[in-house]
Design a protein around this nucleic acid. Structure first.
Length: 384
DNA sequence: TCTGGGGTCCTCGGGCCC
DNA sequence: TCTGGGGCCCGAGGACCC
């Protein structure tokens, strides 16, 4: 019997599919009296400021607008696209609903972020029927009933292939990939389609004349190890042949918790000292609230700086004791900051706490987030 | 007019200890 | 006392993912 895993990726609301809509821009995209509140749609061309696209409908993608693209650049390509603010609290709520549906259908699930999971079909009811298609279709229906969202599902013998399979038939598709499909379905794909091959590795592969997974498979293991080292070399070889024995990881503890913020304008450590100090304190306060709410404390405190030329720098410090309160986090982060060059203007400041452990004590969570804004009525995706 | 925020994992160099 | 190696931790940076 084959072992099947499935990878799911949530997609946007089908009602939006025909319209060029982008989500992004962070909090700044939603000013106090937002156009949505006045019953108007904010257009991308009207947006001024920093930020990137969080996601885009397929209609918007036709204009070359995709997640990660700067908003100003996106506005140049598709000025009439509707811009909606991101609402991560709402996404987390939908994410929980979607995962509840999945867990009702399969015995084990690996959480891969807000909109992706791996599922174990091997021992699920109907998991083997029609190659997994019966269960995948039922999960799709149940997710849609619970959330109004559509999703794509890939069913394959392992996580590597399931993830690639889930991309075959978007949106709202089901793809079944067997080991025997390797040559026909996997080898023609670009190496970049392998989960874990990013821009850098893809460029290195391309420089060696390797563009597709099939071309990768023409090289033997020692050759790949020579060019990519023992770790990456062996891994690439196994990917090319569709091998992946990673188990489903159903439980994990966070390694670090952080907060960071890109400023509306670049700030100088001396000339903008007051503003920077307030932002720094605010980051530490919010981070402490996150730790408190999630029930963790950490021994390693670090800062992250991004300069106006986009170079980033990190400094961290491991303490003798675990901390979780804003004051001690700020003190340690301040020591880290003292070790960083601050002549150049900054565009981002971040604070991170790592080496986490459960804080053990059960204290009541703070009444409200220090930065909580009064909830304003806003347009929800499902209202469209 | 480029390039968010919140994460994980890996590598590498240095220090320290045995 | 010196040298070397292995193991481990720490700190920094980079690649990658959602």
């Amino acid at each position: 019997m084959d072992a099947f895993y499935a990878s799911v990726e949530l997609l946007r609301h089908p009602e939006l599919a025909g319209l060029p809509v982008v989500i992004g821009g962070g909090r700044r995209a939603r000013p106090a009296a937002s156009p949505e509140q006045r019953g108007e749609f904010r257009r991308l061309r009207d947006y001024k400021g920093r930020g990137v696209i969080t996601t885009a409908t397929y209609a918007a993608r036709k204009f070359g607008v995709h997640s990660g693209l700067g908003l100003m650049k996106a506005a140049a390509q598709c000025p009439d696209a509707i811009l909606l603010p991101a609402d991560f609290d709402e996404y987390r709520r939908y994410s929980r609903l979607f995962k509840e549906v999945v867990l009702a259908a399969v015995p084990a699930m690996e959480d891969r972020g807000i909109d992706e999971v791996y599922m174990d079909f091997t021992s699920a009811r109907d998991g083997q029927e029609a190659g997994g298609r019966t269960l995948a279709a039922r999960i799709q229906r149940d997710i849609h009933a619970a959330t109004g969202l559509t999703c794509s599902i890939g069913v394959a013998p392992n996580k590597l292939l399931a993830k690639m399979a889930s991309e075959f038939n978007k949106p709202n598709g089901i793809s079944i990939v067997h080991e025997a499909d390797l040559r026909a379905k996997i080898w023609p794909l670009a190496c970049r389609k392998i989960n874990g091959v990013g821009p850098k590795l893809a460029a290195k592969l391309a420089a060696l004349g390797i563009h597709t997974i099939g071309e990768l498979a023409t090289h033997d293991r020692p050759w790949l190890v020579r060019h990519f080292g023992p770790g990456h070399g062996v891994w690439l070889y196994e990917c090319a042949w569709g091998w992946d024995d990673r188990p489903l990881v159903t439980e994990s503890e966070p390694v670090s918790i952080s907060r960071e913020s890109t400023f509306e304008r670049d700030l100088h450590a001396v000339r903008d000292r007051a503003e920077l100090t307030a932002l720094f304190t605010d980051l530490c306060t919010r981070l402490a609230a996150d730790l408190e709410r999630q029930g963790y404390e950490g021994r390693t405190v670090g800062v992250k700086l991004k300069y106006d030329d986009f170079r980033t720098l990190t400094r961290e410090l491991t303490l003798d004791e675990y901390v979780r309160d804003a004051r001690r986090i700020r003190r340690a982060a301040g020591l880290c900051l003292k070790r960083a060059p601050l002549e150049q203007k900054l565009r981002l400041l971040g604070v991170r706490v790592g080496s986490l452990r459960r804080s053990g004590t059960l204290e009541a969570p703070p009444a409200a987030e220090p930065d909580a804004q009064p909830e304003s009525p806003q347009l929800r995706l499902r209202d469209l």
